[in-house]
């Protein structure tokens, strides 16, 4: 087990190097720091000095890969590649383009993100599984057909409309929750209710439909017939046998996204004005803050790989057939 996890970690290294090279290529090779500076300074006619100044201010005034002027090891370390890309491996994100410490911002902003993402995940999971079981219990009846149509319709609505609709109905018409904003500590709950509700509703369509498919797949299997031949009631068959088996793909599907919950939801957070990592990323994108985007790309990749490893581990925990080697 330990050896397996260790090996998976080793596998992660070349992938992270790959991610790093891709981002480096995207951010520094396709467009030079000069271009970035010109973009930031805005006007068409920017003086060379202004560009140089901007670059110096943000640490882009080094050579890309190899510093001929520096000596020894510094000729490799005193470069943009080392400063801006390699240091990401040590989670040293450096300052953002407007001078704030990215690492500090991330550590502050991930909590509001989690405060939304975790309830959405848990409530959504509970609701979707229950609803899917309900549908499957009444399979091949009008309950089933009607529900499937409803789910497909819900899937066909853009997430933006759920947010806009939720804000409009719950906040504007009925004044049940504040439209947007955030508060520290426990007072945050009233700001969180609406985004959580919206998040859950937005996920019902695809979530419940997927679980329904999983349940139906399991219900067609031979062991379900055996269970029925034992004289088990339909309720026991569903809850004990079908749910038990279907939970394996459900749980591992959840585990893979667990680490990514830290990244927050881009759209929800920015609509509701929640100071999480999602809105952080959005703001960075609209402010064209490359340093933050770069850091988030790397962080996202790390979390994704972590999710993959956790998935494999969770398989061994929930599925007796799987033993890691």
């Amino acid at each position: 087990m330990t050896a397996y996890i260790l090996r998976r970690m080793l596998y992660a290294i070349p992938i992270l190097i790959g991610v790093n090279l891709i981002t480096f290529a995207l951010f520094f090779v396709v467009n030079s720091p000069d271009d970035m500076a010109r973009m930031h300074l805005g006007e068409k006619r920017v003086t060379e000095e202004a560009i140089l100044g901007w670059k110096r201010e943000h640490g882009y005034d080094r050579p890309l890969l190899y510093n001929e002027e520096a000596r020894g090891l510094a000729s490799l370390t005193d470069t943009i590649f080392f400063e801006k890309s390699v240091k990401l491996f040590a989670f040293q994100f450096g300052p953002s383009d407007d001078g704030r410490d990215i690492g500090y911002d991330i550590s502050q902003r991930m909590w509001p993100s989690l405060a939304i993402a975790i309830p959405v995940l848990l409530v959504g999971l509970a609701f979707n599984i229950s609803y899917a079981l309900f549908i499957v219990f009444f399979r091949a009846t009008y309950v089933d057909i009607g529900s499937v149509v409803l789910l497909v319709a819900m899937m066909s609505i853009s997430g933006l409309f759920y947010i806009i609709g939720g804000q409009f109905i719950l906040s504007k018409l009925f004044h049940l929750a504040p439209i947007s904003g955030y508060d520290q500590g426990l007072n945050a709950w009233k700001f969180l209710t609406l985004p959580v509700i919206v998040g859950v509703i937005g996920g019902i369509g695809s979530g419940t439909r997927w679980y329904r498919t999983l349940f139906l797949e399991e219900i067609a299997k031979d062991y379900v017939r055996t269970a029925r031949a034992k004289g088990l009631s339909e309720r026991l068959v569903l809850f004990r046998h079908v749910l038990g088996n279907a939970l394996i793909p459900i749980l591992t599907g959840v585990v893979v996204v667990l680490p990514l919950l830290f990244m927050g939801s881009l759209i929800t957070e920015s609509f509701f004005g929640i100071p999480g990592l999602g809105s952080y990323t959005i703001d960075a994108i609209s402010n064209q803050d490359f340093a933050i985007v770069r850091s988030m790309v790397f962080l996202g990749a790390v979390l994704y790989i972590l999710g993959l490893i956790l998935t494999d581990i969770s398989y061994t925990l929930v599925d007796p057939r799987v033993r890691l080697q």
Partner: peptide, 25 residues
Amino acid sequence: TTLNSIPGVLLIAAAILMLQVYMSN
């Protein structure tokens, strides 16, 4: 796996930002 591990939105964002820089220049 490498491409997949970069969050999609961010990769798109990065690429589009680069395109914008290129186009404005």
